[in-house]
């Protein structure tokens, strides 16, 4: 799926804007996997993926009338999902600060290392699973740039726009992310 103008998608969006539920259903099904994968790669926690993906689509369809066909619809969806993930990180930071005050709360169990979670058996492919685990060890900015480029396949310009960075920052952080991941996953990558 590329970011160029897609006539079929534009038609679905127009129909969705006029309240056609069938068009909305088709748009959800078309982008659901992308949104799930993106959130999963950034958050590294499969529990939160469906809820955040749902919230992403709710935001999209509540603002669908504001979409003016000037930018890529997919990039717009990704931007909303990335912003939601950032909000979630902020909330998690606050929860981390206040968790000593409420030791019995469920949020006191942090999911920093998804590899230790019993439910982290989503991917059959061992290397991919290792990549997701290694991604969670990266700095959040490196994790996001790597996800947007390598997992979602966005061009530099779109990444710079979504993350509000300069093009040079995107390139240098992407390089750092690759280098750190390659260092962490050298054994798995050699086996490929």
């Amino acid at each position: 799926m590329n970011l160029s103008r897609d006539v079929e998608t534009d038609k679905l969006i127009r129909e969705g804007q006029s309240g056609n539920s069938e068009a909305i259903d088709k748009l959800i099904r078309k982008y659901a996997a992308d949104v799930h994968r993106l959130i999963y790669s950034i958050m590294g926690n499969s529990d939160k993926v469906p809820d955040l993906a749902q919230e992403t689509f709710l935001r999209i369809f509540s603002r669908l009338d504001q979409y003016r066909f000037q930018s890529s619809f997919r990039a717009w969806i990704i931007q909303i999902a990335v912003n939601l993930c950032r909000d979630e990180f902020r909330k998690a930071r606050v929860r981390k600060i206040i968790s000593p005050l409420f030791p019995d709360s469920e949020d006191s169990i942090h999911s920093d290392d998804p590899g230790t979670r019993p439910d982290f058996k989503l991917e059959r492919n061992e290397t991919r699973q290792q990549i997701i685990i290694a991604l969670q060890k990266l700095d959040k900015s490196l994790r996001m740039v790597f996800t947007l480029r390598e997992i979602e396949g966005l061009p530099y310009e779109e990444i710079a726009r979504i993350l509000n960075w300069r093009l040079g920052t995107v390139k240098s952080r992407l390089f750092r992310a690759r280098k750190e991941l390659a260092g962490m996953l050298s054994h798995q990558l050699e086996d490929l």
Binding site: H36, R37, Y40, E150, A182, L189
Partner: peptide, 14 residues
Amino acid sequence: KAFLHLKQASRFNY
């Protein structure tokens, strides 16, 4: 080689 393998392994369907 590592970057190339990383690229190939990163594409997955959820």
